[in-house]
């Protein structure tokens, strides 16, 4: 198709290309050529993010699964940025750090909505794919966590506390995310994951307020780092157990 090989749609209108097609020997698989041409016309080009993900993950399928994560879509990201921006404005005006309280809740919600039945419309088909759904879950959860951590750090820099930028909330954020992920995976419902994640975080914040006297005790106390990490590890263990296949002792293959 001459110089139209890179643009088959133009090639279809080109007289020379059409003449070439007419004079092509009959033993050539014209149907196959046509399918190849149409595939290039119909196909969209993967975005930059997907191309980078393909290189990092070394899997085109996993990269596509990553960029279709519901809680990584533009609308979700805009909502997260708006919530954190409002948190920055309020923090500056009342001189109380709100980002350490908001960031873990946002991350937990995002992770609960990353993957699962009821969240991913094609979940049933996705479970029959050679790329395991556990791997899809892992990649999506890590991406959502990473992005939320980045947004939270940017917001913390924009609204520093009296002692400078503190990032101790990354630890409770890990625990809340793990709780939301475990609840969503075990129950098969993103809503249950969000509810339990946020409820757990609210209880921790209120408990910290009562025992420590400050709203941000739950987000900044050094004494809570180890319990948070142990709790997160337990939740991850639950996720791994719940997402294995077969997922019950009585359900065995032989």
């Amino acid at each position: 198709m001459h110089d139209h090989a890179s643009d088959p749609a133009r090639g279809l209108d080109c007289t020379a290309c059409r003449r070439d097609l007419e004079t092509t020997p009959i033993d050539v698989d014209l149907s196959g050529i046509w399918t190849g041409v149409m595939s290039q016309v119909w196909a969209g080009r993967p975005g930059r993010t997907e191309l980078v993900a393909r290189r990092v993950l070394r899997s085109a399928g996993l990269a596509r699964a990553l960029v279709t994560t519901p809680s990584l879509l533009l609308s979700w990201l805009v909502a997260s940025v708006v919530v954190l921006a409002a948190g920055v404005v309020v923090s500056l005006s009342i001189d109380t750090p709100l980002i350490p309280l908001l960031a873990p809740g946002l991350a937990g919600a995002g992770i609960a909505y990353a993957y699962g039945p009821g969240t991913d419309p094609a979940y049933e088909i996705a479970r029959t794919m050679p790329i395991s759904d556990r791997m899809v879950l892992l990649v999506r959860a890590l991406a959502v966590f990473g992005l939320n951590a980045l947004l939270g750090i940017v917001a913390s820099v924009a609204a520093p506390m009296a002692g400078g930028v503190a990032l101790a909330w990354l630890v409770p954020m890990t625990a809340v995310s793990a709780l939301a992920l475990a609840a969503a995976t075990v129950s098969g419902s993103a809503n249950v994951g969000v509810t339990l994640g946020l409820a757990g975080w609210c209880i921790a914040v209120l408990g910290g307020r009562i025992t420590g006297g400050h709203m941000d005790t739950a987000a900044s106390s050094q004494q809570l780092v180890l319990p948070y990490l142990i709790f997160a590890a337990c939740c991850v263990g639950i996720v791994l157990r719940a997402s294995r296949f077969p997922n019950h002792r009585r359900q065995r293959w032989s």
């Binding site: 279709t68 419309p121 979940y123 049933e124 794919m129």
Partner: peptide, 24 residues
């Protein structure tokens, strides 16, 4: 499956391509 879940904003090509890639 009996009930096909799908991504409403995908084109037909994108949807089928998604599973082609997941099927390796």
């Amino acid at each position: 499956p009996q009930t096909l879940g799908y991504y409403a904003n995908f084109t037909v090509f994108e949807f089928v391509e998604y599973f082609a890639l997941l099927k390796e």
